[in-house]
Nucleic acid binder design. Structure first.
Lengths: 169, 169
DNA sequence: ACAGAATGTTGTCATTGACAACAAATTGCG
DNA sequence: CGCAATTTGTTGTCAATGACAACATTCTGT
């Protein structure tokens, strides 16, 4: 910050007013008007999405699993033997990023990549036994996360949001 | 990718089958099963949020405004003269990031930072005349974005989502 | 008056999304 | 069949973002 000579004026006399019970809250608690932001779905969508991801990451911190990794593990479990391209299409993860993400999962011995019998370019992805075990633990934590989410937004609101968001692909 | 000798087998004979109208779609269109992902609000929340932000960025590409910049401009317009700290608290933008974001808006002559009369540490933020003009254009584009969003998710669903998301923060 | 908090700045690091170039393999089409 | 275009996976790079630490300056509370 550029430091400049103080320009203190008499204008801050009102700061000395002692606050009655309906007066303004202390400065650090003030929230400002949202203006037009109040009419943008994306703003509220993003705020909740950030809350959800942060809670997920914290809740699963013990397993060091991030949301994208979790989603890839689930998709491999539900669709064993598929290629990176198929998984990337399903989750909208770009090829380059998925390749690096899978390197990490392979390094941890959770995922194997075998040669595909039908297409020598592609890998056939499977969970290892370790991967299945880890994913079981991870799913437990993910359920805890989902419960916290429900109590944060309200179970009813959570269900309504699920319905609205799921069936519109 | 590691290149290995082809292991072509007879197993791909079915690839020659000609597809009837109910047969599987071509490989590149296949979507896989979601597994447990289908029960996670965060997954669907994130997918829609990504769609919204990408559409926003594309729709406002002519003005080179990103979502975070837009939100800061709106908050300054709705609350002229406030400090960076107040704006950061409202939008949950971290101090360091907001400082750099405002440097950029100041460089573009959309925002000014005057010395605050009451607190020599803080800046008093205002839109310039240029900033007001630019924001008017930006708001027009943002309305176009919001209309596209409504036609993507359905106007009714959009309204329901707004209600669910807005009044719980 | 003085310790601790707040404000804004700069530096650094990790994650993420996007894009380009590449080798190997497959597909499509004449 | 033969060859161009496409697909698959890999690596490299860049920009945006979020997080955190250190710092000088200023304010607050007691």
């Amino acid at each position: 910050m550029k430091r400049r000579p103080s320009v203190a004026s008499a204008a801050n006399a009102k700061k000395r007013t002692k606050r009655g019970k309906n007066a303004a809250p202390p400065k650090r608690a003030q929230k400002l008007a949202l203006g037009q932001l109040d009419h943008h779905l994306g703003y509220f969508l993003r705020r909740l999405q950030i809350w959800v991801f942060q809670n997920f990451i914290q809740t699963l911190a013990a397993m060091h699993v991030r949301p994208a990794q979790y989603s890839v593990l689930l998709i491999i479990q539900a669709n064993p033997g598929r290629s990176q391209a198929a998984i990337g299409r399903t989750l909208s993860i770009e090829r380059a990023r998925l390749a690096r993400l899978l390197h990490e999962l392979e390094r941890r011995k959770w995922v194997t990549r075998r040669a595909s019998g039908s297409d020598a370019r592609s890998h056939s992805l499977h969970l290892t036994a370790d991967g299945e075990k880890a994913l079981a633990k991870i799913k437990n934590l993910a359920e805890r996360h989902e419960a916290r989410l429900a109590s944060h937004v309200g179970p009813k609101r959570r269900a309504q949001l699920m319905n609205l968001l799921r069936d519109f692909g």
